[in-house]
């Protein structure tokens, strides 16, 4: 495992920690899209179905369990916690699941390497992860006074994707049989989706102002 991959995973983990701190610490999920969180849970479930059949390393297995556990916890808090659910911006979080899930499913069925349930669902998870952040970005545009934790959460998630691209470039040049066009294309698309957010994040940081995304 190279340093980019490890740093990427740590950013991903940190983004989840920041989100959980926000939700449980200040008992608020204001500005957080439940739709994005549920899509991530679906991504993890469909991707990690091989958790007990395809052992790679203890690190991978533990991380998969952590991602499954924490994303379930986040969805649970936002949906069912007596206090936290009251802070969810349901009326603003209007992105349609089907708009993201249906194309991902069609593409997975059309491009899967082999047609086994596990492989098609894995391919589906790659497509879905690429676009799962969209409800969150739309909700951010609609949120006035985005708090620091929410801005940092999205920033850390975007950093994780950027670092994975550096990891792929590194592996491309150091490993002979590392050719993953599907994963790469989706990864690049996913990172491009963050570009607009990054622009305004750095702008607000540079000017020492609160983050605001123009509608």
């Amino acid at each position: 495992m190279n340093v980019f991959r490890l740093a990427g995973d740590m950013m991903h983990l940190l983004s989840i920690v920041v989100l959980l701190l926000k939700i449980t610490g200040i008992k608020s999920c204001r500005g957080i899209s439940l739709k994005t969180q549920e899509l991530y849970l679906l991504v993890f479930i469909t991707r990690y179905l091989d958790i007990f059949t395809n052992f790679v390393s203890l690190y991978n297995t533990v991380m998969k369990l952590v991602f499954l556990g924490t994303s379930s916890a986040i969805v649970y808090y936002m949906r069912y916690d007596r206090i936290i659910k009251l802070t969810y911006d349901k009326e603003q979080d209007t992105f349609k699941y089907l708009l993201l899930v249906a194309p991902s499913a069609v593409l997975a069925l059309a491009t899967s390497h082999v047609y086994t349930v596990l492989e098609v669902l894995w391919t589906f998870s790659i497509y879905l992860e690429a676009v799962a952040i969209m409800p969150q970005l739309v909700l951010l545009q609609r949120t006035q006074n985005i708090d620091n934790l929410t801005g940092n959460y999205v920033f850390l998630l975007g950093s994780y994707r950027g670092l994975y691209i550096l990891n792929w470039i590194y592996r491309f040049f150091t490993e002979k049989h590392y050719r993953q066009w599907l994963v790469w294309t989706c990864g690049v698309v996913q990172t491009i989706i963050y570009c607009d957010f990054f622009y305004y994040y750095f702008l607000s940081w540079q000017n020492n102002e609160k983050l605001a995304l123009p509608a």
Binding site: R5, D9, H12, D50, N54, V56, S57, N60, M63, K64, F67, T111, S112, H113, V114, W122, Y164, N167, H177, Y178, R179, Q180, W181, L182, V183
Partner: peptide, 10 residues
């Protein structure tokens, strides 16, 4: 169809 991907990443 694309080549089988290495599933050693998260």
């Amino acid at each position: 169809a694309p080549a089988a991907a290495l599933k050693d990443e998260l």
